[in-house]
Computed example of a mutant assay.
Amino acid sequence: MLSKKTIYLAQPRGFCAGVERAILIVEEALKKYGAPIYVRHEIIHNAYVVKDFESRGVVFINQLDKVPKGAILIFSAHGVSKAVRYEADERQFQVFDATCPLVAKVHAEVVSLKERGFQIIMIGHRGHPEVEGTMGQVDSSIHLIEHVPDVDQLTFDKDELLAYVTQTTLSVDETQEITAALIKKYPQIHAPKRQDICYATQNRQDAVKAMIPHVDIVIVVGSQNSSNSKRLQELASSLQVPAFLVDDPSQIKSEWFKSVKNIGVTAGASAPESLTSEIIDAINSRYRGSVVPMPGIEETISFSLPKGLLKAA
């Protein structure tokens, strides 16, 4: 007989406003222009979404020389460097920019700081497309750090103009530790008016914290290359609850749930609700589980589409 379990569903979870906007940009471009539509980098970090778009004629590329002259090109939600923008202009692509407005805010801040003579420290993960795009807004004067020990390696003068910015999808707690170390070493460092952790990242982490006392295990719906999804998994694990990151129902393993009564389910900001539903169904196919939605923040933020796609939408 299947053992009954309770599935607690985090709130909020899944798509944020920036991701919804990026996906809608691709959808509307497909409607208006038809396939193929080219997207520089994965539009969002979710294998489920990327596979669906590929089946409908969207081509994901990393190098612009793979795109025919004059084609429709979309920049992903993570943003791109100025060099990529210049190259797109030179190749005469029709470009729609799906950069998350919160990432674009950090881009603008980096440019402003450089113009005012600051050396800029970026807190983020090396190789992540958002970090590459943000650092690529300026030709120099920006320096990446990933961990607290990296602060010790910085050699700026005490009286140098310094400022920091952050990748939007980092762990709130991790970022606070790094910024505290920066401020201790450089008390005069310029901080953003508001920490650049996006609202959705913070809300989803807070929802996991609220769910933890009620569950024995956490399933995070999201892909391995999704920074904010991995932070949710790491957060649950740091709170002494086993956590697993999945982006396909076939990845669910029965041994995870032995001696487990209460299961927590959340989803990263790039994971669609339809995939979360499939994951829950996969769990319920093994157990007679009841689903209990957790109380939490209802997000109402939305971002507008680029002007060239508004009419189609």
Rank of each mutant, 00 (worst) to 15 (best):
A180L: 02
V221Y: 07
M1D: 12
Q11L: 15
S227M: 08
V292E: 06
Q119I: 02
V95P: 05
V151A: 09
G79Y: 00
Q233K: 10
G34S: 01
S227T: 02
E160C: 09
I301T: 13
G268A: 07
M1L: 12
N284R: 14
Q202L: 14
L162D: 03
I7G: 07
E54T: 15
E273K: 11
G296E: 11
K230Q: 14
E87D: 14
H143T: 15
E234L: 15
T155W: 01
R126D: 10
Q167C: 09
E28G: 03
I44L: 08
T168E: 12
G222W: 00
G14S: 02
A207N: 03
I37V: 15
G79D: 06
Q11P: 12
V220N: 08
G127Y: 02
S140Y: 06
D216S: 10
A98R: 03
K185Y: 00
E273F: 11
K4P: 08
R194V: 15
G264C: 03
L30E: 09
H125Q: 10
I23Y: 01
L64G: 07
A83Q: 05
D281L: 09
V80W: 04
D89Y: 04
S304W: 04
I263H: 01
L144M: 12
V59N: 13
S141M: 11
A98S: 11
Q137D: 08
T169H: 03
A29E: 06
N228V: 05
K184C: 04
P192S: 13
P192C: 08
R85K: 14
A282W: 11
I25P: 01
I23A: 14
V110T: 03
R116G: 11
